[in-house]
Design a protein around this nucleic acid. Sequence first.
DNA 1: AAGAATATTTAGATTTACCTAAAAAAAAAT
DNA 2: ATTTTTTTTTAGGTAAATCTAAATATTCTT
Lengths: 220, 220
Amino acid sequence: MSFSTSEENYLKAIFKIAERKGVPVSTNAIAKELHTSAASVTDMLQKLAEKQLVQYRKYRGVELTSDGKEVATQLIRKHRLWESFLVEKLGFSWDEVHDIAEQLEHIDSPLLVNRLDAFLDFPKFDPHGDPIPDRNGKFTLRSQIPLHQLSSGEVGIVIAVQNHEKGYLTLLDELDIQIGTSIRLIETFDFDNSLKIEVSDSREHLISDHISKNIYVRKV
Amino acid sequence: MSFSTSEENYLKAIFKIAERKGVPVSTNAIAKELHTSAASVTDMLQKLAEKQLVQYRKYRGVELTSDGKEVATQLIRKHRLWESFLVEKLGFSWDEVHDIAEQLEHIDSPLLVNRLDAFLDFPKFDPHGDPIPDRNGKFTLRSQIPLHQLSSGEVGIVIAVQNHEKGYLTLLDELDIQIGTSIRLIETFDFDNSLKIEVSDSREHLISDHISKNIYVRKV
DNA sequence: AAGAATATTTAGATTTACCTAAAAAAAAAT
DNA sequence: ATTTTTTTTTAGGTAAATCTAAATATTCTT
Ligand SMILES: [Mn+2]
Ligand SMILES: [Mn+2]
Ligand SMILES: [Mn+2]
Ligand SMILES: [Mn+2]
């Protein structure tokens, strides 16, 4: 009932791709997510299928079994709890924590995870606004829309960002955009889908579609 | 400048054996410490020697180079800081933390270690009384003697235990012996070197030489 | 419905970290 | 100073996780 770091990373990748693009998940999509070769992915899928963690049909892609989903969910729980710990208790900023959490999520101790959860007061969302599954694997659901889906003049509160790369997050810092920031959509430019926005009732910026599509808000 | 978990475990083992028994450290001693075969140890020593982490002479044993010592010291620092965190912040008891710290000590992030150190208020000793090296690798030295070196009637305060196994530590819990506990040596039995002791001016126990030799005290 | 392009699997290697059994060296005992 | 015992190294192999190149299956395009 314990898995290698490698097996865990594959299960988490499959879970995340399935969330974004649905099932079945293709070999190439996994290879891209994990920066590895398609051949390596095929090897691992056969292994995971034998262990009943995925349902695999040659040339047709994979889907997680309920066991596989359980493992992936616990990993995501650990990742997001550790990120919360690093920000809330150790004073890290949101652009510094992902890579460290990639390591910490593989620490194997259910007791530690639950103690950490309690120490943090059972947080429901991590520093990037992503929901933290509870000890039973249950995610808190919220309605959220990508920033560009606001109508002109509408205001949204940032509740999540979908990209955790350091470069992306420090760019948001430059724009004074964090979780909780209010953004008014002023105008959409159809030419390249860039947006003119007003941040916190003060600064105005023109942001690319690549930036805006990773920002999720709830309407006020 | 980054090493595998396996390489790190060998370096730490060599450091600890050298501390206890001096240099050079034999192949067999390492094999025993890491529960592995002598042949595996030889393989690894050759690899570590190539990387300039140990000075290795065939059939003659090894000694850490200054690079090797540096790596080992940082590992010990991480291990003991994580143990302190688990006890001080997450409410673990001293017999539950060693195995988890064995995993956490391999997390690679110097910034994390130093933030953790600050979060814990720069502790000088871990939950077992072992000194925590500072960020420059400096250990706080104290004079400590094994319990059996007290003379009859003398009192010592427990400042460290040398064995971290769960079984040993829960036994000490049974005897109400913790870091800081005062123990009076009542009598030594030469037959098997067992000791009659009085714990915290109240309970008397007869303890085996195997138990007493892992308890270190300072005279009051 | 072919043919071309893309995706996936298989074949065959490589690296790391192990192992057992045999050989060689060092240390201990006579 | 031999002989015996112990320690250490070498030889040869295995399993996990990766790779590249070649073969095969699927999907897209005409
Ligand atoms: Mn993350
Ligand atoms: Mn996150
Ligand atoms: Mn320990
Ligand atoms: Mn300790």
